[in-house]
Design a binder for these strands. Sequence first.
RNA 1: UGGGGAAUAGUUCAACGGUAGAACAGCGGACUCUGACUCCGUUAAUCUAGGUUCGAAUCCUAGUUCCCCAGCCA
Length: 555
Amino acid sequence: MSVAEKVQAEAGRDFIRDIVAEDLAAGRHKTVVTRFPPEPNGYLHIGHAKSICLNFGIAQEFGGRCHLRFDDTNPTREEQEYIDAIEADVRWLGFDWGDHLYHASDYFERLYGWAEELIRAGKAYVDDQTQDEMRLTRGTLTEPGQASPFRERSAEENLDLFRRMRAGEFPNGARVLRAKIDMASGNINLRDPVLYRILHATHPRTGDAWKIYPSYDYAHGQSDAIEGVTHSICTLEFEDHRPLYDWFLENLPVPSHPHQYEFARLNLAYTVLSKRVLNQLVTGRHVSGWDDPRMPTLAGLRRRGVPPAALRDFAKRIGVAKANSLVDLGLLDFSIREVLNKSAQRRMAVLRPLKVVIENYDGPGEELEAVNHPDDPAAGTRRVKFGREIFVEQDDFMESPPKKFFRLSPGAEVRLRYAYFITCRDVVKNAAGNIVELRCSYDPATRGGNAPDGRKVKATIHWVSAQDSVPAEVRLYNPLFTRPEPDVANFVDELNPNSLEVLRDARLEPALAAGNSPEPVQFERLGYFARDRDSAPGKPVFNRTVGLRDSYAKA
RNA sequence: UGGGGAAUAGUUCAACGGUAGAACAGCGGACUCUGACUCCGUUAAUCUAGGUUCGAAUCCUAGUUCCCCAGCCA
């Protein structure tokens, strides 16, 4: 079986993998080379994860390689902090660029040389128009643009001006270098696009060496060509840049001719994946930072407890296509549960405690055995402390239960997981009429959770010992936005006021206290949780990664 | 009204002229010391109108709807 056939059989196929397979089969390339080209002006988010999985995934599947290249052509927005975070995030996601770490800034000198060649060939010129003048003469979507009065300068004059631009003789915005293509093109990207602009700014890598910086369009394709990239994969909005991408490659003596392919970027319901908006969420203090667990950033997802394998699984499930779409959050949740169900050990915790006194239990307490993973005996067992007073979940009791409620209610018998059957005998309320305590009885014969007489119970609920459990803070998360497709212009108005719910009185079994907690962990019947870095000695903090499916809650 | 794209179950993605399939969601059931997991079953779609063809989601024509482009951002 050829590599291409293997990929089609094993991995999900999509139109880009089809193209790669076909190019390889036809011998157009010996090996596939892709690249992931982030601009270090923010943190990576789940949309980038889709792109990373695509680019690195293709390289892996076809036995090629994928470069990590920073698209650092705009020093006014880029920072070292982002460069470091991006590298860490890509690694965390599970991908390795080996020796192939590059920067567009590595190529500044070559790009500059090629710009001079374009000038000498009469294919580029220095324009003195102001930004406003350029905008006015660019035409509109339906009308052609007009030539700049500087369009026909001599090559000598252009060269002189361009060199002086580089030398820093002119202030920001005074002049630009433009390609001379076609001011009447229906494709506005071809109406003499800007190649270089003057920017007196310090670059994270090149420092103050440059006073002019190449535009994305001028830098990207040539960088691909220098690196021998074969398939340059980007998102749909660059589709009408492709003729320009190709124009540079055709008009410059580049070492290779990569091809650009476009796919639809990820859109996630109730989520914004715009670096600008994410940045504003952080700077506007709407979230606690780039790694706030509500953020769709890789840092935020990681802190929430989402394993990288879940993101890779998600990427595989959503596929790759050219149609714009809006992915349901449920699909992400499914991928997270899919991975965590297999890997997370089980423990018991009570989020909203309701005290239960077992009136006929007199002993000093005892320890009962609990399994750590129902499908993995190798995970072993642990002992959990039981006593006369325990806490159960408030949601697991109803004074007047509807027909289908199987848990605790007056007179009802349930199983305490790994412990005993108990029956609710009485409900204690405070002066305000709120339920503050349940009085129950237990059946000593059901120790361990099995009834010797074979009687069944309709529900098993979780619990923790009142005496031996440890207090904890638990943070629950909901979507950051109230609408499936938030209006990016008014995102502040559409923030979900209930995106964070902090439970300060949760109780954990001691096996979840500092040092003991497995990672990841499932709180039985509740969901998957991850210890937050805000945890302090004696004061654990847990984030709910995702809840368990709950067919009762839905009904 | 210029240029570039896209339309298939509720959602996301397949089907590359030859029986419209999958995953998620939904519904029904089995199992269960997690109302979880697992398993079984099931509902559900080709934007519209013409045309070519023995045969069209696929090719052609004409429409409709949606997305992107007028940064010295990427």
